[in-house]
Structure formats: structure tokens, C-alpha cells
């Protein structure tokens, strides 16, 4: 399978990316690792006429500390996020989640910004960033704006990104020692989650329980109100109606959400040193 023809251009700086986007408009797509885009192009679900390769823009790939936050450049690979000492110490949920994506080859190429901008509700990172209460820095012609992760995801493959904006960085609060839990329910290790749960510091987000990472509000409120994990987790599917598919019915997804939320919360509690 081969993509339809396109022109390829390699951006050299963030500013250059914006210029190229302005020049090519809607016909262009950004290419970082290409592990969301190229598979869609090969089956011709996407046929952009220009690809702007942003992978070698130096100022987009980094992991650094900025006060109370960790900041991660958009083209940082999943493998780098998974193996970063800084992230493992201050946001271990994120490094763990990055290590669950796909397989080693995919993690070598795929990028944090690319995965988030793709906005697949079954993916590892969207729910993780929502659970982490992360913030995305969006760079556009008029500068940078910040959008909360939970406001960023709008629907299946739809985000708050304007057509002339890119994700430039991902910001997550540093929380060393705070317990976290991650449950990814799959048939095979390298599958997408049938249901996934990420939780840290009383926030819970779920993968594949709707068109965007779902927040089980009732569970979070119960936890905040001092209820036990079992009671709170039992509410995890309240008001959430995921679609059924060949792997799971709506009812089965809801059941998994309750079981996995309980397990993730138990793990988080057992890890908590704060």
C-alpha cells in the first residue's frame, strides 16, 4: 500500500513551519514521526498534497523543568518520553503511558505531539494528559496560547487546534511521589485499549469510552468526598455511554471501566508516597 502522490518539504525552524503552513494552507499536513498519518495515507483515508516534515526542527524536541512543570517538546519521541529520567521522577504516569504505546519500533518514531494532535480516543496519551491535568502550548501566527488537555480534545480525530496552529509543547505538573495508576485492557500487548484508565492525584481519565478521553465525574466526586475506592469505582461508567464494536459491547466497556478504575485507584493508593 502506497500513499497518493504529494510534495515533501522539510521545515528547519518553528517559524519555518508556520510559514510553510501559511503557504500551503489546508492542502498540507504536518509530519513528525508519521505513525498516525502515514498509515492513514497508505490506505488513502488521508491524501494531503503537501507534507511538512517537522521532525528535525531542533527547538521542538526536548524535555525540561520549568518551575513546577515539566515541559516536553512536541516532536519528542515516545521512546524518549518513556526513558527520560526527568519524566520518570516527576511524572511517572506519563513515562509509563508512553512505554505502553504500540511497540518499540513505533515508539522510536512516534511523537508526543503527533499522538495528541491525532486525537484518537483509544490511544494512550490523550487520556494520560487529561489525567495529568496537562496543558498544551499551541503555536500559531499570532503567538503561543495554552489549552488545557481536557479542553483540547473535541471529538474523534478532532481537536482545538486551529488550521494554522501546531502543538509546540506539552506541559505537565511535577508531582514526584504522588501515586498513579494505569490500566490498559487489550487482547494483545500491542493492541489499542479496549478500555484504558489513567489516574493520578484523584483525577481519572478513560480511553475508548467515547469520542474523547472520558472523565468519570461521579467517581472523582466520590473520591473527593472521602468515599472508598470500591464505592467510587462503582460509579466509573455513570453517564458514560461508549459505542460497541467487535471487541466490546457498551455494557462490557462500562463493566471494564468500573473494574479497571478500581484497580488503577488501588495501584495509585499503594504507590502514593506524598
Amino acid at each position: 500500500m502506497i500513499p497518493a502522490p504529494f510534495d515533501y518539504v522539510r521545515a528547519t525552524s518553528a517559524e519555518h513551519i508556520l510559514e510553510l503552513m501559511a503557504q500551503h494552507g489546508d492542502e498540507a499536513k504536518l509530519l513528525a514521526g508519521g505513525h498516525s498519518l502515514l498509515p492513514m495515507m497508505k490506505v488513502r483515508l488521508a491524501s494531503p498534497t503537501v507534507l511538512i516534515d517537522i521532525a528535525s526542527v531542533p527547538e521542538l524536541s526536548y524535555v525540561k523543568v520549568d518551575g513546577d512543570d515539566l515541559v516536553i517538546g512536541a516532536t519528542t519521541s515516545h521512546a524518549t518520553v518513556a526513558n527520560s529520567d526527568l519524566i520518570q521522577a516527576d511524572a511517572p504516569l506519563l513515562s509509563y503511558a508512553a512505554a505502553q504505546i504500540g511497540d518499540p519500533q513505533i515508539r522510536h518514531r512516534g511523537t508526543i505531539g503527533g499522538s495528541l494532535a491525532h486525537s484518537d480516543p483509544a490511544a494512550d496519551l490523550p487520556m494520560t494528559l487529561v489525567a495529568l491535568d496537562g496543558t498544551f502550548e499551541l503555536l500559531g501566527p499570532s503567538g503561543t496560547r495554552s489549552v488545557k488537555a481536557e479542553d483540547f480534545f473535541i471529538g474523534y480525530f478532532e481537536t482545538a487546534l486551529e488550521h494554522d496552529e501546531i502543538i509546540s509543547a506539552v506541559r505537565v505538573p511535577r508531582r514526584p511521589g504522588v501515586g498513579w495508576g494505569y490500566e490498559k485492557f487489550t487482547r494483545r500487548a500491542n493492541d489499542w485499549a479496549i478500555v484504558g484508565i489513567a489516574t493520578v492525584a484523584g483525577r481519572v481519565a478513560m480511553a475508548n469510552m467515547g469520542s474523547i478521553p472520558a472523565r468519570p465525574v461521579a467517581t472523582e466526586q466520590a473520591l473527593a468526598g472521602g468515599q472508598g475506592i470500591a464505592e467510587a469505582a462503582a460509579l466509573a461508567a455513570d453517564g458514560i455511554e461508549p459505542a460497541g464494536d467487535m471487541h466490546a459491547t457498551t455494557a462490557y466497556r462500562q463493566h471494564l471501566a468500573r473494574v479497571l478504575t478500581r484497580r488503577a485507584l488501588e495501584t495509585a493508593a499503594s504507590r502514593n508516597q506524598a
Binding site: Y8, L31, G34, L38, K42, D53, H108, R109
Partner: peptide, 15 residues
Amino acid sequence: GVSVKSCTVLTAQAD
């Protein structure tokens, strides 16, 4: 130096 799936990498990206 790292393993990749060459069916999902453009030749151009490897330039």
C-alpha cells in the same frame, strides 16, 4: 541506530 518499521517511514524522512 534504532529499530523502525520501514513501511511507515518515507525515504524522504531518512534523508
